[in-house]
């Protein structure tokens, strides 16, 4: 029954998508909207085929994916231990709280001028934009996840003779991990918005560059194709993330 329901829902989603694309195509073909402002899906598809044939679409997608993954993984590697540490220590949380509050509202784009001065026109500069855009929000998710561990469980473990390391490994980490993973999944999407900012300056490849260059030449189909590619790539990485989550946290699924 449940499987049947899922199939029905999937069918409804597919029909909805097909209907939307068909309406869009008809609307454009009937000339209600100028292609410069909104090209038909068939135009976007033909641009995709053209760019797939000369490998440029794959090149742009891989360049952006690499930037997102490097920036995001480095930010996660720093944010996870640091967030758990801050979440379990009220003293250090008080020490770092003003800095986190100051950094939290800064959009990734605001780091562009400083990153250019500090790191120059390099790939590291682009990774740093993704890093700065995803680090503080990840850190906040992890701090919250750590704080949400029932203190009774921590006290019980200590009463049973567990050391601080044991408490961390056996209670805090397994307890906080599902929420951390959920937060990181959200952050991965945000990291993709950062890469667009990163590719605004001194980039010659990547989906952000492809979108901006398409805009310069009024190739709206290229702009929309870049946007579609970002969504598709995020969907694929989300699927990979779910597989990873399933293996890492079998008890939550």
């Amino acid at each position: 029954m449940n499987t049947k329901n899922s199939s029905n829902l999937a069918l409804i989603s597919i029909v909805s998508l097909v209907f939307f694309l068909a309406a869009w195509e008809i609307y454009c073909r009937m000339g209600f909207i100028e292609p410069l402002f909104m090209p038909a899906p068939s135009k976007i598809l033909s641009r995709a085929i053209k760019m797939l044939n000369n490998w440029s679409l794959l090149g742009h997608t891989l360049a952006s994916t690499r930037r997102v993954m490097v920036g995001f993984i480095v930010s996660s590697l720093v944010a996870i231990p640091f967030g758990i540490f801050l979440g379990s220590s009220r003293f250090f949380m008080a020490v770092f709280d003003p800095f986190i509050s100051l950094l939290r509202p800064l959009p990734s784009m605001s780091w562009i001028p400083l990153s250019l001065l500090w790191l120059g026109i390099t790939e590291t500069q682009k990774y740093s934009i993704v890093f700065m855009g995803s680090f503080v929000p990840s850190l906040l998710y992890i701090i919250e996840a750590t704080k949400n561990i029932d203190p009774l469980l921590i006290r019980a473990a200590r009463n049973l003779g567990a050391s601080e390391v044991d408490v961390m490994r056996e209670v805090i980490l397994p307890g906080a991990l599902p929420q951390i993973i959920a937060g990181l999944k959200v952050m991965l999407g945000i990291a993709w918005t950062c890469v667009i900012s990163a590719e605004l300056v001194a980039a010659r490849e990547g989906l952000g560059f492809m979108i901006m260059n398409g805009k310069e030449y009024f190739q709206t189909d290229t702009v929309l194709l870049g946007m579609v590619m970002i969504s598709v790539t995020v969907m694929i990485t989300d699927l990979v993330f779910r597989k990873f989550e399933k293996r890492l946290l079998p008890w939550t699924l």
Partner: peptide, 18 residues
Amino acid sequence: LVNLQVNEMPAAMASGEI
């Protein structure tokens, strides 16, 4: 070829990045 806006060039030339 580095894709850079003209107003960012003086700093990039001065720092020796390009």
